[in-house]
């Protein structure tokens, strides 16, 4: 669905992405993780056609996204972190009414159901709603378009704790099975049990693009009373230490995404080698 080959990108003289390559498939919910400023949003913008690569190529559905053809735009939905584009003097229902005709697979019932589940008042003006409510309204519209590619930039920002749980459930329940969802975040805990595979972006490179199954095959996550000598990474936790080790017959374990992220940041080349 998405093929990125040796892609580089610069803002003026500042290099943001350098020679990155990856492939993303339909029917998966990718988590795009990385520290602030590593180029997560830029990558989403390139995939959605808002930016053009400086070098290399990005192909989505076999097309160059920057051409922004109607057939391409009707198959994707990009939800940016800042929602100024939607905060008009109209309600989300009216917004949907005037924009839905451009999305051939838009499902009005699904839209209404998600709005109801999110407890968003569909007739309230978007510029009068709180940031969290606008985010929920925008998410409802985005999912209801049934786009084949859903790009969500920091979707859990601004959501309260119950809404974050609800968000995860709604994504799993309502996003179509053949949709490729790419969620960018630096709040990894918000997306636990949702994202698989995981992409970790570092300054100018992809450190990891692997499924949870592969990660747990190669790394072991556990809670220990003391830190084992072979631990790649450890952090104190109630009851001991969360430790990450290379999986040498330690068996499968549940991937702790935050610990995985921190391990990757501390042992970039080793993790890249292990999960290549």
């Amino acid at each position: 669905m998405i093929t990125i080959n040796n892609l580089s990108f610069k803002y003026g003289k500042k290099e943001v992405l350098n020679d990155i390559s990856m492939k993303l498939e339909a029917g998966k919910i990718y988590g795009l993780l990385g520290e602030n400023g590593v180029g997560k949003t830029t990558l989403l913008k390139i995939i959605s056609g808002l930016q053009k690569p400086w070098k290399g190529s990005c192909s989505v559905f076999g097309e160059d996204p920057f051409k922004r053809t109607p057939s391409f735009l009707s198959r994707i939905f990009y939800l940016p972190e800042e929602l100024e584009f939607i905060q008009n003097d109209c309600s989300i229902r009216y917004f949907a009414k005037i924009n839905a005709p451009f999305y051939p697979k838009f499902n009005k019932e699904k839209f209404e159901t998600i709005l109801k589940e999110f407890e968003v008042e569909g007739d309230k003006k978007l510029n009068k709603l709180s940031y969290g409510q606008v985010k929920k309204a925008a998410l409802s519209f985005a999912i209801a378009t049934n786009a084949e590619l859903l790009l969500l930039d920091e979707p859990s920002n601004g959501l309260d704790i119950p809404s974050k749980t609800l968000f995860r459930r709604i994504i799993v329940q309502y996003v179509s099975d053949n949709t490729c969802t790419l969620i960018s975040t630096h709040q990894v805990r918000d997306l636990e049990n949702l994202i698989d595979p995981i992409i970790i972006l570092d300054n100018k490179a992809v450190l990891m693009n692997a499924s949870l199954e592969k990660i747990s095959e190669k790394l072991h996550f556990g809670l220990y009373s003391s830190v084992p000598s072979n631990a790649l990474y450890w952090e104190p936790a109630p009851g001991g230490y969360i430790c990450v080790m290379e999986n040498d017959d330690l068996g499968e374990s549940k991937v702790n995404i935050e610990a995985l992220f921190n391990t990757t940041m501390h042992h970039k080349s080793r993790i890249k080698e292990l999960l290549a």
Binding site: S48, L50, R68, T69, P70, S71, L73, S74, F77, Y78, P80, E82, E84, F85, I86, N88, N99, F102, Y103
Partner: peptide
Amino acid sequence: NHPKKGLSEVMLPASV
């Protein structure tokens, strides 16, 4: 052409 507000127009599925 506003970097944020312009997205509703530029991302609308229609040709330039």
